[in-house]
Structures are given as C-alpha cells and as structure tokens.
Design a protein around this nucleic acid. Structure first.
Length: 633
RNA sequence: GCGCCGGUAGCUCAGGUGGACAGAGCAUCGGAUUUCUAAUCCGACGGUCGCAGGUUCGAGUCCUGCCCGGCGCGCCA
C-alpha cells in the first residue's frame, strides 16, 4: 500500500507541472513561500530519468549522511540493473540531464551510483524569505499550502465505553487519533472525528436499574444527574447484580425495556449516557481533543436493515444457528473456515454487526472516502475480517480506503501490564494528574529556587507565580505524556516512564517546549515584533549553523506530508527534535552566531527571522501533535 | 497447532520502495563556560542489527528454517 501511495503522489506532481517550469505541488500554492524541496527534486529527477525509463521511480530522499549533501537519488543503481549498464554511467547520464541549478550545486555522482544534491545557500535563503509572516489571528501555516485534492476522512478515535470511566487504555487511541486528525486537517482534508462510544448492551440495563434505586428522582430531573465516581457506581451495580436475584431480574427487564423503546427507561439511560459523556469530555477538554460523539446505539435501526440485506443477497448465510459471512483466508484453530458472525444464534447483534452498520453510515451518509480506525493491535484480526466482509458485501467500494491504525499497549515501567497494585484498571484522569505532578516538580526545580541555592540570581528574573507554575505544569505534563506516546513506533508496546517523558533532556516535550519558549524570549528581549520582520530585508546564510538551521526549517513541509501519508507521528517528533537541536547549535555561544547583538543590523534582522521561522515551525509541528506551546517556562 | 506483530549500544528507542562506515537520547567519562534563558554545546566510550542459511554488486531491510517475547484464532467488545 505504501508503494501505491508514493506512486500516486509522484504521478500527481508530474501531471501538475506548470508552464513556468515550477511545480505547483501540495506546497506550492501562490503566495505561499515554502514548497517541499523533496517534491521538487523528485519531479526534476523524474523528468531526467524518464528518458531512460518512463516507469522509473526517482527515489529522491534526504541524504543519509550530511557530508554527502542534502538530498540524494538512489534510482541509478536499480535502473542500471534493469538496463544492464554500469550504474555509475547511468547516474552520470541522469546527472547530466538534470536541470537543478536554481536549487543546488551541480549534482555529484558518488559511490556505486548515488546522485547527491547540495542546496545552494542563496536558494535556501530565497525560499525562507518567501514565507509570509504569521497572521495576526488564526492558524499559522508557515507558508504551507493545503492539499488541492481534499478528501472526506473519518477518524474513529478514543471510543470509550460509557458504562465506566475512561482508563489508561483509552489514552493512545485518543492521542494518536487526534494527531492523525490534526495532520489530515492541516493537509486540507475534511475530517470527521467519530467518538464511537459504547452506550448499548446488557450492562446498561443493569446501570439503569441501579440508577432507579439510587437516584429515584432521575426521571424528574434527568439533566441534573451527577455521578461523582462512575467507576465506583459500576462496581456497586455489578456487585448487587451478582448478589441480588431481584435486582438481577430488574436489570434484565430494563434491557428488554430499553430495546423495546420504553420511554421512561430510555430517558434514564439517556441521562446516564449524558452524565458519562460529561466525564469523558472533562478529560478530552483537558487533552484539547475535539470529537463528535456517536454511540453504538445510533445504529440500532440500521443494523437489522444491513443484516437483512446481506442475508437476502446471499452474502451472509446461516451456520450453527448464527448468521455468518464466510471469507477466504481466515481459519479457526481447527483449520475450518472462520466466518465473521453478523447475527448471533439468539438473534442478537454483536460488535461486527454494529461495525458493519457503522461502515454503511460512514460511507453512504457521511460520504467518507477514507476511514481510519485508531484501535489497539489486539483487534487486528477483527478489522481484517470486517474490511474483507465490507468489500465482499459491497458495503465498501474499492475507492473507499479502510485502514486500521493499530497501536501497541502501554506497559508499566517494568514491562508488566499497566494496572493498579490490585490488578484493576488505572483511571485516565489519575494518569494525567500524575504526569502534571511530575511536570510541576520539574518546573519548580528549574524555575528559581525559593530555598535560595547558589545560582538564584540568573533565575530570579523569571521567577514564576504559583498560578504560572500551575499553568505551565498542566501544559508541560500533558505535552510530555502525548509526546512520549507519539514519539514511539505505533505498532510496538512501550513502557510508561514518567521520568523519561518529563525529562528536560533528550527527545521530550519539555525540551521542545523550552526550546520554543527560549526563542520567543529572544524576540521579546530584542524588542522586535516578528510579524513585521518579513519581506524588506534578506535572509543571509553564511555561517554553517545558519545553513544547517535553514535546511531543517525547509524540511517541514515534506515531513508533515510524509507523516500524514504514512500516519507515523514519530516521523514528526524526530524532525522537531532535530530542528530544535539545530537551533541550539545556531544559538550556541561558541559554535553558533550572535543574534540580537549581531555585527550588523542586516544580520541581526536575518537571524531574528531565522529564530521566528524556527519558533513557528516548532509551534506548528507541536500543534499537529496536539501540543500547546508556552511563551514562557 | 495456525496466523499476525516484535527481538537493533548497559537502558529507552529511531532506522521511507534493499544502498554509501547501523543512528539518537539517557547513563558513563572528558572538554568548553561566569551566559543572547547552561533547561546549552563539543568529544569519547559503547552494537557478530535474536540465530542459521539463501537471493543480490550490495541485506537491519527481501526469502526459508529455527529460538525468544507479545497478541489473536465462531456467537464479548
């Protein structure tokens, strides 16, 4: 699939070559300075290579080793094999046919047949100078244009069960799904964030019955329902259910009443779900995650229609009393065909039923062209079967992309399952509090010592009030949690390590947030308004650290694009860390350059603009991860 | 049993369709320095990329077998 995506991307660029000879790619809209250099070079190499083989992939990528330049093309080697010619001579011919003098030094052929590109400093400077200033209000795109081929995308994220409180198991889906949605939105797509909450099933009969007993006034004032501890409420109801036969009967009757649409029962159920959703949104608000709530019950009426149609069309057949869709390639332990069960032998519906109905709704009503399920890897088989069944039954036509964005589990620091000492689930709220507390300790220890240790003097000028510390701790703590999650390969399990994630050193949110705050402080101290620094004066890239920083800033469009194409957030986190390290070197007193006391006024403005572009790139990148920045730390 | 996913430096992890000596952070050790927010920068140390074969000019990456760990495998979600 990855190959297909890349091929499509390349073809798109080639088709879009404008009369000017420039590439109006995803990042090349008029008036928006920064285009993806990777795309542009890919197009240029593609044109040169096409003379030898129209099918060949230009294989342009950032240089593996900076000593070889900024970008490299690896296409000559494989092409040479195909043509039966020496790879170096193929590379020489491609290099000779290339027209890249506006961007790069003359390309060099090296090693077995690599073609190396080194960007010209003035080309980089020119591109950076084209980036428009940040808008006074609203989103700063840092000069990156949105896609001109927007798609309707559904991201299925978070999706807790309303019977209980959100727990640590919901963190990854929420954070990863939000990140995917943000990146796709930024790229210009029309994203619907579906919070597919569990609001139906036998447990809700029990909860309704328990609510009747504990909150007799709920019917009179359903909106006033408050349950302080949802988890405890569930546990108490369950205990009574197991111990009390009368209550058990009431619960079962409530289930039936719910299914039959009994008004009073449904009002109680609704009151409970709304209260539970309020709990969810307290957490989602805190995480700054926006969703559309649409519970499983939303599909109640649709399910029988969908299933009846499957049965009528012969896609689903009865087996051992259950209605099944048989699919090729799936087997049971015994080697028998493994079907997807879409209706239980008791006539009831299950997970697969509601997922199929949900797909129908998303494709036919919401008109989604791409549906991304952000769900743990343990459900991989389920989604493979679901997708296969949806294809087979014609619910999902070929042009609709179905993706399971699978992620591994969050484990405890020791590598064991992440549970309380008693083996219970950990509430998500408690986890957030723990991260914020750890961040508070870090911020307090670094923001000037009230105990008055040796180095109090330099810190005193940014001593923070209690309120400021709280605000910073909240932002840093949640950022640390999200960033740590997103900076790992999604498919793998990872260990929850509060110290590592809140550390101020290394590839962490606190490091990046500090880097950002530090750059903003430069602007404040320099007494300039970055918004007015544009245009008039040039960007000068003479010093090696200036050039290194420029290179990093210019990679932002291609990194965002690739992160969105592959849905791998750690590509973006790695980039942001690399960018801020490049800034630290640029700003280093020994190996870097002077900024606001630069030798000339022109250099001062140029360097301040580099600071501004770095800060804006960091802010944009972090915002796509769902992380807020701070002007001061 | 079958299937899927992992196994990379002491630790935590990156490694785009096979490509240039396998990268980073932490930890450890050494250096810079009284500062443009040092919450920094530079350097060193550290790896038979689970094992064994194979394909290839070239394999952490592809193929086969095996070892270890995790997950999943008909009426839960």
């Amino acid at each position: 699939m990855r190959t297909a995506v890349l091929n499509v991307g390349i073809r798109t660029v080639l088709l879009r070559r404008g009369p000017s000879g420039g590439i109006d790619g995803v990042f090349g809209a008029e008036g928006c300075g920064v285009r993806s250099i990777l795309k542009e070079l890919t197009a240029r190499v593609g044109e040169a290579v096409a003379r030898l083989d129209p099918q060949a992939d230009p294989l342009v990528r950032p240089a593996a080793d900076e000593s070889h330049g900024d970008y490299q093309s690896n296409c000559a080697m494989s092409l040479a094999k195909k043509l039966g010619q020496p790879p170096r001579s193929v590379a020489e011919r491609i290099a000779a046919a290339l027209e890249v003098s506006d961007l790069c030094e003359p390309p060099e052929v090296a090693g077995p047949g690599f073609i190396n590109f080194r960007l010209k400093a003035d080309a980089m400077a020119h591109r950076l100078a084209e980036v428009p200033p940040a808008p006074a209000a609203g989103e700063d795109r840092v000069g990156i244009a949105p896609s001109d081929a927007p798609e309707k995308v559904v991201v299925d994220l978070s999706s807790p069960n309303l019977a209980k409180e959100m727990h640590v198991g919901h963190l990854r889906s929420t954070v990863i799904g939000d990140c995917a949605a943000r990146i796709l939105e930024f790229l210009g797509h029309d994203v619907i964030r579906e919070n597919h909450v569990g609001d139906w099933g036998t447990q809700f009969g029990m909860l309704v019955a328990y609510l009747r007993r504990t909150h007799p006034d709920v019917l009179n004032r359903p909106d006033a329902l408050q349950i302080a501890d949802l988890e405890a409420f569930y546990v108490q109801a369950k205990a009574l259910f197991d111990a009390d036969a009368t209550f058990k009967r009431e619960s079962q009757e409530a289930v039936v009443a719910l299914q039959q649409g009994d008004t009073a029962t449904r009002r109680i159920w609704e009151a409970f779900c709304n209260e539970s959703l309020r709990h969810c949104h307290r957490i989602l608000d805190r995480l700054n995650v926006r969703v559309v709530d649409r519970g499983e019950s939303y599909y109640n009426d649709l399910m029988p229609q969908v299933i009846d149609a499957l049965e009528r069309d012969g896609h689903a057949v009865e087996s051992q009393g259950a209605l099944c869709v048989f699919l090729e390639g799936f087997k049971t332990k015994e080697g028998e065909p493994l079907p997807l069960l879409v209706r239980k032998s008791d006539g009831g519906f299950n997970y697969a039923t509601s997922d199929l109905a949900t797909l129908v709704h998303r494709i036919r009503t919401l008109k989604a062209r791409r549906i991304i399920y952000v769900v743990g890897v343990t459900q991989k088989l389920h989604f493979e079967m679901l997708f296969a069944a949806a294809r087979k039954c014609g619910i999902a036509p070929p042009e609709v992309r179905l993706e399971h964005l699978a992620f591994g589990s969050m484990l405890s620091r020791s590598g064991a399952p992440f549970k309380t000492r008693e083996g219970g689930t950990i509430k998500l709220k408690n986890l957030l509090d723990e991260a914020v507390a750890a961040a508070r300790a870090v911020v307090e220890s670094a923001s000037g010592d009230e105990d008055g240790d040796e180095g109090a003097a330099p810190m005193s000028k940014r001593a923070l009030s209690r309120e400021q510390v709280e605000e910073i701790a909240e932002t840093v703590g949640l950022a640390a949690l999200k960033y740590y999650d997103l900076s790992h390969n999604l498919i793998k399990d990872y260990r929850f390590d509060i110290e590592a994630m809140t550390s101020l050193e290394g590839n962490t949110a606190p490091y990046l947030l500090y880097a950002y705050a530090r750059i903003r402080a430069i602007g404040r101290r320099a007494g300039v308004d970055f918004a007015t620094l544009s245009g008039s004066s040039p960007i000068l890239l003479a010093h090696p650290t200036e050039q290194a920083l420029a290179r990093r800033i210019l990679r932002l469009p291609e990194v965002i694009e690739q992160t969105g194409a592959e849905l791998k957030p750690n590509l973006l986190t790695d980039y942001l860390y690399d960018l801020s390290k490049a800034f630290s070197r640029f700003y280093d007193r020994r190996l870097g350059v002077r900024v606001y006391d630069a030798p000339t006024g022109e250099l001062r403005v140029s360097r301040l603009r580099l600071c501004d572009l770095t800060a804006r790139s960091l802010k944009l990148g972090l915002s796509l991860l769902g992380i807020r920045t701070l002007e001061q730390m």
